[in-house]
Write a protein that binds this DNA or RNA. Structure first.
Lengths: 113, 113
DNA sequence: GCGTTATGCAACTTCATGGTTGCATCTTAC
DNA sequence: GTAAGATGCAACCATGAAGTTGCATAACGC
């Protein structure tokens, strides 16, 4: 696809979301939140293999992609999932799959003619 | 999540797929294939911003993640999408979303009691 | 056979990412 | 008000990923 054709914007929006999910530590954080609900940085760190600082960085990356958001509660910072972007990513995958099927249909049609 | 709790294997399977999709160039290749059908490396390179070698590397990454596969046809190598992994990724996203909703329900229940 | 086209291989550069440690700051609980 | 707990900030290191260039090889077309 050329950088100027239709669909480019979709790609450049979806990529950062997938990139954010494409790290085991981050995906584990997402999994942890999804099963246990909103959690503080310290609680997320306990149960992760890495440092609190590393967890903080990963949460920042997820936040940049719009996958999580945080709320201050006293001295702690509570993180929770933000499903919008995840649903958008899922929709994108479905879209790609559907177009692929159509492309194969066109190809089959072409071969048969 | 601890590295030994349930769900860890899912995470370590899903992460590489998302990682493969988390690059604009690669996602553009996927988009191109999905709209135009199976294509050779040269054809994929025309319409991409980068070198043929770069495209080849990206296709290799996508192949490692099980997202594409190739077939030789004479002197060219034809690449096509492999939807299985993409559908698995979509299913994973749905799973996470569902568990998050349930976690919020439990939380609400807990607060009300 | 020979030029052209399509791809493969390898070395190399650059830069972002994941991770760490050390110290500062801010809340909260007594 | 003071100690302990939760987080913020910054410097630093190591590795891998993305991209390039240059050359080698293999398959067509005529």
């Amino acid at each position: 696809m050329s950088p100027h054709s239709a669909g480019w914007r979709e790609v450049s929006r979806a990529a950062p979301v997938f990139a954010a999910l494409g790290d085991e530590t981050r995906l584990a954080l997402v999994a942890r939140l999804s099963s246990d609900g909103p959690l503080s940085i310290t609680r997320l760190t306990a149960g992760s293999a890495v440092t609190r600082q590393a967890v903080t960085k990963h949460l920042d990356v997820l936040a940049m992609a719009g996958l999580v958001s945080d709320v201050r509660r006293g001295r702690e910072r509570i993180w929770e999932l933000e499903l919008e972007q995840m649903e958008a990513a899922g929709a994108y995958l479905e879209h790609v799959s559907k177009r692929w099927d159509e492309a194969l249909d066109r190809l089959k049609q072409f071969v048969e003619e």
